[in-house]
Write a protein that binds this DNA or RNA. Structure first.
Length: 428
DNA sequence: TCCTGTTTAGAGCCGG
DNA sequence: CCGGCTCTAAACAGGA
């Protein structure tokens, strides 16, 4: 029987999304014979942990793999050591070894036989000051179990997937920026995966003494932010926040890059402005991705745009627009609702209508978004579980009656945008 | 006043 | 070399 310690770091404030928990459990279950979890939690999560609810959640999620015949089991019963003791969950402050934010499983574990993956294709995370990049770094966790980390870059793979083989080791990357543990901009925690988009092979970000600039363009960052949101649209401030939460680099010189973000939103046709409804007051409009902009990024890779999206292309027919209640003015990036055709349409469904129409199903070999972690793939997987858009495209004339399903982030305390990507994570 | 959004301009990089 | 893309800066207007 092999036991592994699963160490998950989480920023504060914050909570584990269902997807993150799901990912932890499933990845481990699919890999290990048995798992003993040890969660490093932010202080905000401790009450949840102490109350037993977190363990219950983990336990519940661990059932699925077992039903598929897996012998793996996530131990969460009363035999688990209590909080704070060896073998049990530990408070984040007891993590003695701070230099490694992401702890690995023990060796001799193979992840789905995908050892062939290129290191550069993912598995990005940051190491702390003083440690060297692109090295294997031994560590000892709070329970005295040693492992090896492969340090190769500054950023976590946005998918947060496992790296199947690193010098014979396996890793589980589920960590987030440990803001609660480190003063921002001074020490480096791993960066939480935004939930999609492979780090494409190519130039590997080099670690710097300070946070290195992410290899993503602003358009990529904005696209990622919007895509990862449950409603597929964000306000400007939410976009700011998402970027800063995910990439500590952008916590500095905010005026500079935020201006660029605003410029990108306004200048690029791939972003459309969704005006607020009267009964949904607030500052600023929502920004969404143009329904036809799905193939901007090659293979869903956010490092480089395949082509610049320009509105007015033939990709989206009038029939499709009208059929789903969409209409847009060629003179404006704002989208307007045709009230007579108004209906609540899940945006991802609309995307897939587009994809199907163009013979570009997510799994289609010619689909530029056919990548495992591409937006379309992810959206396809969540088609039956993603909440509907809280509003249709339609700006001012969207009636509250159409907002039949509220923004899940407003009603579900456990909602997290990343939860939509559980299927992909399960496949890790 | 601050934030949001638009627009213009210029520089740098990269690929054809 | 040229065009396209991206980034940065700045000015400006309008709204909360």
């Amino acid at each position: 029987m092999i036991y592994f310690n699963l160490l998950v770091l989480k920023p504060s404030p914050g909570w584990f999304s269902s997807t993150e928990l799901h990912r932890c459990v499933l990845c481990v279950n699919r890999t290990c014979r048995s798992v003993r979890g040890a969660l490093l939690l932010s202080p905000a999560l401790r009450p949840l942990l102490l109350s037993g609810r977190l363990w219950q959640l983990l336990s519940d999620w661990s059932e699925a793999p077992q039903q598929r015949g897996s012998r793996c089991r996530f131990r969460s019963d009363s035999r688990d050591p209590p909080f704070g003791q060896v073998g049990g969950p530990v408070p984040i402050t007891s993590c003695a070894h701070e230099s490694v934010r992401i702890q690995l499983m023990r060796s001799a574990v193979r992840m789905d036989g995908r050892e062939h993956l290129d290191r550069s294709s993912g598995f990005f995370y940051r190491e702390t000051e003083g440690s060297s990049a692109a090295t294997n770094s031994s560590y000892m966790n709070a329970h005295g179990i040693t492992g090896t980390c492969y340090m190769n870059a500054d950023y976590v793979n946005p998918v947060g997937v496992t790296n199947p083989s690193v010098s014979g080791q396996s890793s589980l990357l589920v960590a987030a920026d440990v803001a609660s543990m480190n003063p921002p901009l001074q020490s480096a925690g791993p960066v939480l995966s935004p939930g999609f988009g492979p780090i494409c092979s190519g130039p590997t970000p080099r670690r710097a003494s300070t946070y290195a600039k992410p290899p993503y363009s602003y358009i990529s960052l904005i696209s990622m932010a919007i895509q990862q949101s449950g409603t597929k649209m964000l306000t400007l401030n939410q976009i700011y926040q998402w970027i800063m939460d995910l990439f500590p680099f952008y916590r500095q010189n905010q005026q500079r890059w935020q201006n660029s973000v605003r410029h990108s939103l306004s200048f690029n046709d791939c972003f459309i402005k969704v005006t607020r409804s009267k009964d949904w007051p607030g500052k600023g409009s929502f920004w969404a991705l143009h329904p036809d902009s799905g193939d901007m990024f090659q293979n869903g890779c956010f490092l480089r745009r395949q082509k610049r999206f320009r509105s007015g292309t033939k990709a989206c027919t009038d029939a499709q627009r009208s059929g789903s209640g969409f209409s847009s003015s060629p003179q404006s990036k704002q989208v307007h609702l045709n009230p007579r055709r108004a209906e609540v349409v899940p945006l991802q469904h609309y995307h897939h209508q587009q994809a199907a129409h163009q013979n570009l199903e997510p799994n289609h070999p010619h689909c530029s978004f056919s990548h495992r972690f591409s937006i379309s793939s992810l959206m396809f997987e969540q088609q039956n579980q993603t909440p509907y858009l809280p509003v249709t495209y339609g700006g001012d004339s969207v009636s509250s009656a159409n907002r039949t399903i509220p923004d899940p982030s407003h009603t579900d305390p456990f909602y997290h945008p990343l939860q939509n990507y559980s299927r992909t994570i399960m496949d890790c």
